[in-house]
Design a protein around this nucleic acid. Structure first.
Lengths: 200, 200
DNA sequence: AAATGCATGTAACGCGTTACATGATTTT
DNA sequence: AAAATCATGTAACGCGTTACATGCATTT
């Protein structure tokens, strides 16, 4: 058995406690509000909603629209809430890490220094965009303090802020180190085009 | 097609540039030296080594041992180095995030406050262990400065340090918030056993 | 006596992504 | 005229985990 329970259904249930939504809406909601720590593809969302409906955890109502295709609006049921509550009692599994950037950095002696430098730069740039997005969400949550969820949303957001700020500091520090290392390497062994390693 | 290239073979190649090893050794090396940002299971390592050998990226030599089972020692070939170099030129993909703790925190209104508090505490404790392990590695790398890789290894390690420190700060802050929130809730609505939501 | 470590491997299984399909409307 | 958005869905495919198998040696 390769059971990994995996919470893909429970995110949907959780989101539906906030508001009844269609599968399409759920995709957006996940991306826009918890995208910095969770993702869910439509290839997962639609089949899972069907399974949840078949199990009585959600109910769906068809909503007609003019011009646009019909929407299936899903609502969580009592049974769905119970399932969510049960899942919330289970200790969360730490995520198994797979950071490709760090992997390539770890093997960087085998690489072109310029490439590695570019990777770190690129990561810093793209994460700073994410950070700004998160900071934007912060302001939005502040306006939503009628929701009892708001304080928790803020804590989850805060995680992203602190983590990404740490990443930014690391990137700045690392880019400096890489620069020093590259210039030292260049002066130490000048005009070395092909790395010589005596293997096979 | 669901191609995700996935670097599982390249980690092995990368590790073999440091030293020739068996599959078993590779499993340990991954866990012990890059375990904080990468993981690889034996169910992946052994078949991948066979594939790499079949493609001429590594070569294996059987090593007899007394009492213990034979070891297959793998070495990277010229072709293997080329493959690694090619992979190192490709921009690393940002990891898709899946943080169960934050997910449960996000839906914490639906949960028992004590459970959530415990989850954050538990995460902080287990990550502080990881942090100590990383700090231990730091000292070991310092002794390995004959390796040209050492500076890069340090940068990868530093990432883990800064990130985990940020997590620790977040956890401390969040536990404080949760405590405040829980006491406020208890005084606001006393003796509420069943949450009343008008859904199905 | 039982459990853990060494060492290599295979098989089952499911999770998740990507690609594709459809078709109308709105934006560029 | 082309591309993107809305909206729902299915099928293919592979990655990765878990479990299982084997068997000897050492540790508890």
């Amino acid at each position: 058995m390769a059971k990994r329970s995996s919470s893909s259904m429970e995110v949907l249930l959780g989101m539906l406690t906030i508001e009844s939504m269609s599968g399409y809406d759920l995709g957006q909601a996940v991306r826009d509000s918890i995208g910095h720590f969770w993702n869910e593809s439509y290839g997962q969302i639609y089949p899972n909603l069907k399974k949840l409906a078949a199990g009585g955890f959600v109910t769906g109502k068809t909503e007609k629209q003019k011009g646009k295709p019909d929407r299936q609006i899903y609502s969580i049921t009592k049974k769905g809430r119970e399932r969510l509550a049960a899942w919330l009692k289970v200790e969360p599994q730490p995520e198994i890490p797979r950071n490709e950037l760090l992997l390539k950095l770890f093997f960087a002696v085998q690489a072109d220094p310029e490439d590695i430098y570019g990777f770190v730069e690129q990561m810093a740039r793209s994460e700073s965009v994410t950070l700004e997005k998160i900071n934007g969400l912060d302001g939005e949550i502040a306006k939503l303090d009628r929701y009892p969820d708001a304080p928790y949303w803020k804590m989850a957001l805060r995680f992203g802020q602190l983590e990404l700020e740490a990443h930014q500091r690391w990137a700045a520090e690392t880019l400096g180190e890489l620069k020093k290392l590259n210039s030292r390497q260049r002066t130490a062994s000048p005009a070395r085009k092909e790395p010589r390693h005596g293997n096979n």
